[in-house]
């Protein structure tokens, strides 16, 4: 067991714990987008960053382990600025109309969803190629949870990947083929983890 301070609260916890879990243990909830209990945390959304005294940059609390004597601020002005800006940029890139969790976070952080409205959004035709579910990548924030689920965090079916680079990153099948032509087995485990409704069971979309 080690001791640290999170938002001035003294916390005792196991040394293998992440800052996020340690904060949770004293009732401090740190917002996150890509983190999911079932999956290996990729630490890519940076929404869960916190300010750690002595650290040059903000640290992702989902993967950063606690240290003896650490002083953590989970909601400092630096942290707030980052969270708000990330959400605003996301809203300026993606259709978040079905992303309930993100909408709540936007409200919470005071993010202006229209701030980057005149920026180029990622818009794609809906992919409706199988009897089970629909893929609407205009709603996709490339959190890569579905890829993780499809590959080595759950399913080992390897039907999905992230393709491209940078802002052009997309979730794609092999050569962007229709799902029935791929190794997809329609387990739908990807739907469970999609935070924005980009993947949606057909009946849900009606």
């Amino acid at each position: 067991m080690i001791g640290l301070f999170i938002d001035d609260i003294e916390v005792e916890c196991d040394e293998e714990m992440t800052i996020m879990k340690a904060a949770e243990s004293v009732g401090i909830e740190i917002p996150t987008i890509c983190y999911h209990e079932k999956l290996t945390p990729p630490g890519l959304c940076r929404q869960c960053v916190v300010e750690v005294e002595g650290a040059r940059v903000l640290l992702p609390s989902c993967v950063t382990k606690v240290r003896e004597g650490m002083k953590v601020k989970t909601n400092s002005p630096r942290v707030q600025r980052v969270r708000k800006t990330i959400l605003e940029m996301l809203a300026g890139s993606t259709d978040l109309s079905n992303a309930q969790g993100l909408q709540e976070q936007m409200k919470e952080s005071g993010a202006d969803s229209k701030r980057f409205d005149n920026s180029e959004k990622r818009v794609f035709p809906i992919k409706d190629d199988n009897p089970f579910y629909i893929r609407d990548y205009s709603k996709c924030i490339v959190c890569e949870r579905c890829v993780q689920v499809c590959s080595e965090d759950i399913q080992f079916s390897y039907a999905l990947t992230t393709s491209g680079r940078g802002y052009e990153n997309r979730i794609s099948t092999y050569y962007d083929k229709e799902l029935p032509q791929t190794s997809c087995v329609f387990c739908g485990n990807c739907i469970d983890v999609c935070p924005t409704g980009a993947l949606i069971a057909r009946k849900e979309s009606l």
Partner: peptide
């Protein structure tokens, strides 16, 4: 699939889900 519950621990197949 509900979270971390045996026996499937949050996983399903096509038959169960659809």
């Amino acid at each position: 699939a509900p979270g971390n519950i045996a026996p499937n621990y949050g996983r399903l197949c096509v038959k169960g889900r659809f």
